[in-house]
Design a protein around this nucleic acid. Structure first.
Lengths: 194, 194
DNA sequence: ATTATGTTTAACAATTTTGTTAAACCAAAA
DNA sequence: TTTTGGTTTAACAAAATTGTTAAACATAAT
């Protein structure tokens, strides 16, 4: 017989993602998630067996979504310059939706002592080689290619993680902050790809 | 009568800071902290009354320590260029010790719905004005001064927050990572102050 | 309409985490 | 030495969080 699928399982997972990745409530309990999803907490156990399994699944999918963006860019048939442009655009669009996603991934990565699979490391290595080539062509500033990548991701991700602090520090509202973040796409490109 | 002070209260606080800020275990319990400090958990309640009070005190002191670095630089009688240099040096020295401190501050900031005091905002405003002046002198690239500050802190803080990921991604050990981070001091200066 | 099967719920149980109490301990002062 | 007061501990209590069970519910298939 066909599964009925009322979307509840997905709703719980999406709600968990929203709470963790968008709202940054890294200490949320299963009750918090159930409440936010408007369902009985028992359903969390029904669909996911345990809190840990839900959390791990959420972390796994987050990693996969992040990889998808990177892989799509890394493997694209584009000049390096366009790859960087697209990386900034795609990554920031996601980061604006889920500013705390990487934080969650990092803390879960530490907590569960995961390791990065070899294939991912190899893709990174390839891209590092592309960066190096571009530097040797004199198109971007020469430095350790790893610094180049760290700079790029730092410039994209950090201001979004610290949104609440920045809004308070600079006295700006949601709209203005959104505008600032959109401006950053071009600004970051100019910084790393002068 | 004079307090005896065996240093236990400070030990607990320092251990909490190490676990939160250095090891990034944001979900640590009072038991975790007591164990790491080698004391009975009851002492946490004896000295701090409750878990929340300890956590808040730790967050307050973290904020104060961060402010101390910034204020020291902001109010220094130095040329702007030297201020930036010193900011990078001092901030990164602390960030290398406590890479997750800002993360803790951000999440606690959200959780407890704190606000930034006016005097701090004013100091930031002053520094933003200095940045703007330097831009108008043509010494640094023209942009919204807030972007300048966000870039600076992003470049300093983010690679340290993602240390565990980077070490795994790039296959590097503690020593090499430390070397990379020290290199960044100069590299960041060159990036923002070309 | 009845059945079958997945869905949802309430009540309960277990575990984890936090908070409290009273007594033992220990070093300095009387 | 005895007292004094802070310090440390073990045992206990309370609260919060998570996990389990069985029964009620709802809907598609028969």
């Amino acid at each position: 017989m066909a599964q009925r699928d009322t979307g509840t399982e997905q709703l719980i997972k999406d709600t968990a993602k929203r709470i963790f990745f968008s709202e940054g409530k890294l200490h949320a309990t299963t009750q918090d998630i159930a409440d936010a999803a408007g369902v009985n907490r028992t359903l969390v156990n029904y669909y996911f067996r345990s809190r840990d399994i839900l959390f791990e699944q959420v972390a796994d999918e987050a990693r996969a979504e992040m990889s998808a963006v990177l892989d799509s860019v890394f493997s694209a048939k584009l000049a390096f310059k366009e790859k960087v442009q697209r990386l900034i655009n795609d990554f920031m669009d996601q980061a604006m939706k889920f500013p705390y996603r990487e934080m969650y991934v990092v803390t879960e990565f530490k907590r569960t002592e995961k390791t990065v699979p070899e294939e991912k490391k190899n893709r990174i290595k390839q891209f590092l080689a592309e960066i190096k080539a571009e530097m040797e062509l004199g198109r971007i500033k020469k430095m350790d290619p790893r610094h180049f990548l760290m700079n790029l991701f730092a410039l994209m991700a950090y201001p979004l993680i610290t949104t609440c602090l920045n809004k308070s520090l600079y006295n700006i509202n949601d709209n203005e902050y959104l505008k600032l973040m959109k401006e950053r796409k071009q600004l970051i490109f100019d910084m790393v790809y002068q």
